[in-house]
Amino acid sequence: MDILVGSLAAGILIGMVLALVAIGLTIIFGVMDIVNFAHGEFLMIGMYTGLLTAQGMGIDPLFTLPFAAVVGFLLGVICYYGFVKFLLRGPMVAQLLGTFGLMLFLRNVALLVFGSEDRAVHSGILVGRSFEVGMGVVIPATKLAAAGLSVVAFVTVWMLMNRTKVGKALTATALNSQGARYMGIPTDRMNALAWGIGAASVTIAGALIVNFWSVNPFVGLLFTMIAFAIVALGGFGSVPGAFFAGLVVGIITEIPGIWDFFTYTFNLDWMSRVPMTSFKYMWVYLAYFVIMVVRPRGLFGWKY
């Protein structure tokens, strides 16, 4: 039982962080119909930012979030004005390969600058601590804090999109960019803002994830694929969808733990022979494929 509850709890906690990863992707997609392959690389940069500012300034990794947000915002805006803007008039193939090029670029610049070895956070108020919540379930404090802060960041972004004038202008651009331009909304700046907010939310997620996940320049792709799966499930362009889908995908990543639970509970020999941990992320890809084929608009999608 403890394994099951533990896996589910871990899944939900990581799911909250993953929701924050995905919100950036869904905003960018919603506003300008571009799928950003470099999304995971933004996360990787967020992880390095968190790690290096924490080490460089000697502060706790949890306090590096503002730095990560600023770095992410600037990165997003620079990417937009410097590159993505020129992709918008091109065909979809060009957009796909273009953001893929951006991904390769960021990844290899990171490789050149930081080297290929894994790095992790070793110190901090919460590192190494954990709570026992009963029934033998132990939750690391870093994950709990990351999940909590993710929810805060997520809600902030959501409020920004829904309750402010800028957010409404963004939504208008998403619904009908030409119409928005005629209404006097500077759509170009809105696109840049979408990239800024999108990148900032994912770098914040990165700075949170680095507390319990080691970073190297190649970490991005996995998160890009996870984010795609979440966005597909939640519906391309839907912010609340991203949250619930994040939780679902978080639980999907914990399928090996759940599998173990059933193996022990029913004492099934064949189940124990399946190397489930190696399949950990395969479920995410499979989920993406099945969701897209069965319900292309996702659970909450309004854009198709």
Binding site: F83, F86, L87, G90, A94, Q95, L97, G98, F100, G101, L102, M103, L104, F105, R107, N108, V109, L111, L112, P217
Partner: peptide, 16 residues
């Protein structure tokens, strides 16, 4: 990684 950086720049240029 610098070979891949140049390669990435080519991809980006072509697509844009």
């Amino acid at each position: 990684g610098i070979d891949l950086i140049i390669y990435a720049v080519i991809i980006m240029l072509i697509s844009a």
